[in-house]
Design a protein around this nucleic acid. Sequence first.
DNA 1: GCGCACACCG
DNA 2: CGGTGTGCGC
Lengths: 265, 265
Amino acid sequence: MRVASWNINSVRMRIDLVKKFIDQYNPDILCLQEIKVESNLFPLSTFKKMGFEYNEIFGQKGYHGVSTHSKFPIIYSNKNYWCNIEESRHLHIQLSNGIDIHNFYVPAGGDKPDPQKNKKFAQKLEFLREMERWSKTIDISQATILLGDLNVAPLQTDVWSHKQLLKVVSHTPIEVDLFSKVKNVCWVDAIREIIPEDEKLFSWWSYRSPNWEAANKGRRLDHLWITQPLVKSLVDAIIIRSIRGWERPSDHVPIIADFNWPRSL
Amino acid sequence: MRVASWNINSVRMRIDLVKKFIDQYNPDILCLQEIKVESNLFPLSTFKKMGFEYNEIFGQKGYHGVSTHSKFPIIYSNKNYWCNIEESRHLHIQLSNGIDIHNFYVPAGGDKPDPQKNKKFAQKLEFLREMERWSKTIDISQATILLGDLNVAPLQTDVWSHKQLLKVVSHTPIEVDLFSKVKNVCWVDAIREIIPEDEKLFSWWSYRSPNWEAANKGRRLDHLWITQPLVKSLVDAIIIRSIRGWERPSDHVPIIADFNWPRSL
DNA sequence: GCGCACACCG
DNA sequence: CGGTGTGCGC
């Protein structure tokens, strides 16, 4: 079973890139973030034509929005608001093969890493605290995936320069600390299970950096976490860097994990 | 000598269509209207690469704007404001072969054809009155071309339905009357010299009409007028209707006139 | 830099 | 419908 996550930065602008990605990488489950569209304007037919019979859309006008597309039956889904803010950032689905998938788009947090002066940063910290409390309710004997654009690059090797990003939102100690607390509740970082922690690894390169490839000032903001029951099934994990070089790309690239998991239980 | 006029509706959005047009129709002089760009952001290099060594840009931020591009030397140019309004609507150039070319973008005139209630319509009428007075200053022994988007369809055969457009701005009697007064000062309608007046002829089809080709609810808003010394040199005149069917087209198509005129005098 | 929103124009 | 501008978010 191949699971992919991609912050697509407008699913309508990039529907052809989505098609190309599906053609080339053939995921069974595709989770998108920042679809930037209302649910009823989502280009659903494209996904149906590409073999995704089961689709859950948690859209929103203009901003945020997440969607999960599956070739396997989805037997349950749930859309949640976080921090009492009506933004579409979390979509939970359960597959008929017994796996739960939580698709997240964590708030970016604005520019200044100061929760007093910057309300967006305060919201991000509160979101992470809520994720920690929520993780404690997760059944650790259940096969569960938490994935998406979590907007935090936790390791020194998850950013192009640890030193230069210590005061930059996404890599500040307070965020990284809260992020670790969430993860340590019950999650295993599937990407870093496969790719050693000492290897530089990014999933996002700013649009504002013109020479993204040569400069390589990236960050690993996209993650795929799993509970213990899935760890022994994890076969591979990759980040498709080359997609950042496609025509009119998203600033994020897809991340993929492969599992050896029975189709039905 | 081939002279073309085209309301391009943003020269930046449609620079590839401009290239394609030049490749296929090879004008010596190309006059554009509604370039919708400041002079210093105009994509000049494209024109230089395509063989237009002489270029005059009368740009404006966001709206209006006209430009004239020539393979023959431009020995004089002048940018004029009309009705004391600072909008870029008239660019005069003189070629080394002795021909004057006045590139015009006449105000569209808004929705309601009522100069009391609609200031834009009042401006359009005043613009036409000013054009009449100005035409009287034209030396009728001089080879001069007046062309552009004049935003009036004068003849019954210049609109898809004379009756249904009598109260629609561009074909109201008051506009048509003022328009005729301008023309009758000294101008000959080169297009109608070649294409009989009883033949329906359009240069514009609204974006709002989805089936533009089948419905064919067009209007002839673009014109090319000449003074007497050029009439005997006029060889041909065409309106390139097919260009309305190109990818992401302008709502106007180019008009072209061919002259048998010596390159230098 | 590059999406979105909205308002204005034709 | 499809350009422009502006402001906003990431």
